[in-house]
Simulated assay, not measured.
Amino acid sequence: MKITIVAGARPNFIKIAPIIKSIQKKENEGANISFRLVHTGQHYDKNLSDTFFEELNIPQPNSNLEVKSGSQSQQTAAIMVAFEQELIDNPCDLVLVVGDVNSTMACALVAKKMNLKVAHVEAGIRSGDMTMPEEINRIVTDSITDYFFTTSETASENLLKYGADPKQIHFVGNVMIDTLMQNLGRIQKPDFWETYDLETGNYIILTLHRPSNVDEEASLQKLLLGIDALANGKKVIFPVHPRTKAILENTNIDFKNIIYVEPQGYLAFMYLIKNSFAVITDSGGISEETTVLGIPCFTMRTTTERPETTTIGTNVLVGISIENLEKEFHLFLQNGKRNGGIPNLWDGKASERIIDILLTL
């Protein structure tokens, strides 16, 4: 079985790392399986791309399509054109896509038009928010997928509602957690730990990148000033996404607690998360890692495609207003951490299950 694995953006790299390890293990045991890794180039900043390959021991891609940035349509179209040629030059039996970025949808479409089977890892997750490009990517990808690998029972149920064949749905767990568990012993202090006198349990991590939170300069300033105030003397470490950095470059606010840092590699970022007091984010994936690590997480969105992080885990959905965040954060300060658990099959073995299943199909 020849598998072409597609990765295009930071979350993809974290998800493919354990899948590749599982394929290599089976290959070494004599199984008839091999892979070709294609990097679409959707994320091309070193801290959002190359660093993850180095730190997670992902082999260098067999091909880099180097599509880089552009509008949603421009980027998707460029990926499709380049990936079609990639598959013509390098035939395979199966295309495996992960997550919900433009590369996921674009490469799934190309594969199906070339009559190839498609496997989607992290299939079935839904936010219900059609203003999110990722939600459209999820729906389109799942509408043409042959083999669905889900992170939760809820995701599997979502696919059934959409009319997917139950025999094609495989609840395997969360490959993001595979990567976390495989690397917990390797996480490392970031270079600035001593510079800013950081102490375990005494700082907050902040990440913001969604258009609803960062595209309007005035609302972004209001949000940051509110977070700076609620930190109440605790340092707020803010790895600034390139999208957000471009907007902040024109501001001259003197924050008391917020500290800008560069985007971090996986090992340093997980060290920061694991040792933090709390996390404020608008990311979906971070709420999975905080759930497993038992770190309070406040997600600045009105919806989540990972409801298990709020029902079972440590995540609280706070909407996009600073007032809601302040309310929920003060409740946390009053009452302490909520008792969170770890969702079913988030045990570090999801990628092994995926490859075992693919070998039987």
Rank of each mutant, 00 (worst) to 15 (best):
T244E: 06
T131G: 09
H120N: 11
G285L: 04
N335P: 02
G226L: 02
A17V: 11
E157F: 00
L358R: 02
T179W: 03
E288V: 14
I247L: 09
I204F: 13
M132E: 10
K26W: 09
G124W: 02
N174R: 04
I23R: 03
A119H: 03
E27D: 08
L317R: 04
I355F: 07
I5S: 01
G294M: 07
N174F: 05
N174E: 06
D165W: 00
V67K: 07
R210E: 06
E249T: 12
V236I: 10
I273E: 14
L224R: 09
I357V: 04
L198Q: 07
W346G: 06
T104N: 04
A155G: 00
T310V: 15
D142A: 01
E328L: 10
L87V: 12
E194D: 14
S49M: 07
E29L: 10
S276Q: 11
R10K: 13
T151A: 09
L159H: 01
I204H: 06
F35T: 04
E328D: 13
D100V: 08
Q85L: 10
Q188E: 13
A155E: 00
G185Q: 11
E328Y: 12
V98I: 14
G173V: 11
L96C: 07
Q264W: 00
N62Y: 14
D254N: 15
F35P: 04
E84G: 15
R210W: 08
I247H: 03
N28R: 12
L56V: 11
N213G: 14
T299F: 05
K337D: 09
I14W: 06
L65E: 07
